[in-house]
Amino acid sequence: MKVISVSVQRCVGCRLCEQWCSYSHNGAVSPTDARIRVLRDLDGERDIPMVCRQCAVPLCAGVCPAGALTRDEKTGAVRVDYNTCAGCGLCVEACPHGAVAVDRNGYPLICDLCGGLPQCAVHCPEGAIRYLRRELVDRDIKISAVRRMGGDR
């Protein structure tokens, strides 16, 4: 299965991913409607793209009292069944990545991997958002971890 992989080191905070996400889902640009959000950490001097990582055991689905969150058979993405979702918001709180957004009606917005061609990854000019096989996600993170161990460059 392929998932979205995020690099805080590469992200520059342009938010093109938010644009393409909201546009491809709704035909209009709105950061609030995007399933990916970039948080600019002004003190930490970095930008953090926040998006579903498609956990192996999705905690959001685990806490859902309505059983509204299941896996899409084709992409493996967590899928929200809006017919059964109660809009209780437990999934928003449960997500360890802070990646579940809420729409204007109170229902969760979770990355659906655009059916297998995630627009955020396609349009990220930095390579900060990539669509990778699960087993490759750690590779990019390893180098930054090593650099952190070595202290300030």
Partner: peptide
């Protein structure tokens, strides 16, 4: 140490 972009800019001259 790194680059920072304004909204919707692929240049990131910051």
């Amino acid at each position: 140490k790194g680059d920072a972009s304004c909204y919707a800019c692929p240049v990131a001259c910051g």
